[in-house]
Amino acid sequence: MIAFAPGARVWLAGGVTDMRRGMPGLALMVQQGLKRDPHAGDVFVFRGRGGSLLKVLWHDGVGMSLYAKRLEKGRFIWPTPADGAVAVSAAQLGYLLDGIDWRNPRHTWRPQAAG
């Protein structure tokens, strides 16, 4: 995973986003739709209509970066449009990018004994 700045907040843009948008279009969406500064160092995550494609927009102080991830199977768990932009932790973003339900991650089975 990409190492974001320690104090960076992660925002999930509720609802669906047109995945044809690039950096300028998504940055404008952050500024006008989410009412946030796209150059402040926060991480903004957008999901497409099909639910299997994400785009992550981040400005590191030097330049803007745009990352994309597509799941081969399944869909990303996403907040509803009524929720608006939802703040999540970096750990929850890691779950999300792995296709795990970030709202309620579950531990896998662990052995009780070594032998």
Score class of each variant (00 low, 15 high):
A90I: 08
E72Y: 11
A27I: 01
T80L: 12
G41D: 06
V56I: 08
V45Y: 09
G94W: 00
G50E: 11
W78H: 09
P79K: 06
T17V: 00
K69G: 07
V16K: 10
S65C: 12
V45Q: 06
V16N: 11
E72L: 13
A68N: 09
A27Y: 00
G48C: 02
G61M: 06
R20H: 06
H39T: 13
K73I: 05
W78K: 11
D101K: 02
A90G: 11
K69L: 10
Q31T: 07
G50C: 06
L66K: 01
D98C: 04
W78C: 07
M23N: 11
D42N: 00
L97W: 06
V88R: 06
G22F: 08
V56C: 06
F46G: 00
A87P: 13
K73M: 07
K55Y: 02
A82F: 05
A90D: 05
A27D: 02
T80N: 08
M64V: 03
D83Y: 09
K35E: 15
R21L: 15
H59W: 10
R20M: 07
A40T: 00
V43N: 03
R75D: 12
V16G: 13
Q31R: 13
Q32P: 06
Q32V: 06
V86C: 06
G74W: 12
W78P: 07
G50D: 10
P38G: 04
